[in-house]
Computed example of a mutant assay.
Amino acid sequence: MSSIPFKVIRVGIIQSPTHRHSVPATRSDDAMLRYFSAGKGYYCHHDQKTELAAGFCSLFPPHTPGITICDQHDPYMYYYCRFTGTYALTLVNQINERRGTIFQVPDEAQLVDIFRRMFEIYPGPLPPERRDMPMTRLDAMLALLLTSLAESDNGPRTANLSGVILQNYLHDHLSDPTDLETIAQDLGVSKSTLVRQARKLLGKTILKAHEEMKMNWAQTLLASEQLSIADVAAHVGYRDPLYFSQVFRKHFGVSPSRWRQENLRQTPPQER
Score class of each variant (00 low, 15 high):
M135A: 02
E97M: 02
T136C: 03
M118D: 02
L201D: 10
L138S: 05
S192Y: 08
L202M: 14
I102P: 02
D139K: 05
R117G: 06
E181L: 12
L145N: 02
L201V: 12
I183S: 03
L146Y: 02
R157L: 12
D186A: 05
N160R: 14
M133C: 03
A143I: 01
L91N: 13
L144Y: 04
T158K: 09
K214W: 09
Q185M: 00
V195Q: 11
P134T: 02
R117V: 06
N216E: 03
R99D: 15
W217S: 15
K200W: 06
L161D: 01
R116Y: 11
S192H: 08
L145H: 00
P128G: 04
L166F: 12
S190H: 10
R98A: 05
D132I: 08
A159L: 07
Q219L: 10
P127C: 11
L126H: 10
F119Y: 08
I206P: 03
A218G: 03
W217Y: 15
P156Q: 14
T136A: 03
T220F: 03
R131N: 07
E151T: 10
A159C: 09
L149P: 04
D139Y: 04
A198N: 10
T182H: 05
D172G: 08
N154G: 12
A184H: 09
F115K: 01
L144A: 03
T101W: 07
D113C: 06
K208N: 09
L201T: 13
M215S: 14
H173T: 12
D176I: 01
I121M: 08
Q94M: 09
L126D: 10
V164D: 07
I121K: 10
L166E: 00
A143F: 08
G188D: 04
A150N: 13
T178C: 02
L91V: 12
S190F: 02
A184D: 10
L111A: 07
E212V: 14
S148M: 13
R131S: 08
D107S: 10
Q185I: 00
L144H: 07
N168H: 11
R157S: 03
Q167T: 11
L201I: 15
T147C: 08
L161Q: 08
D107Y: 11
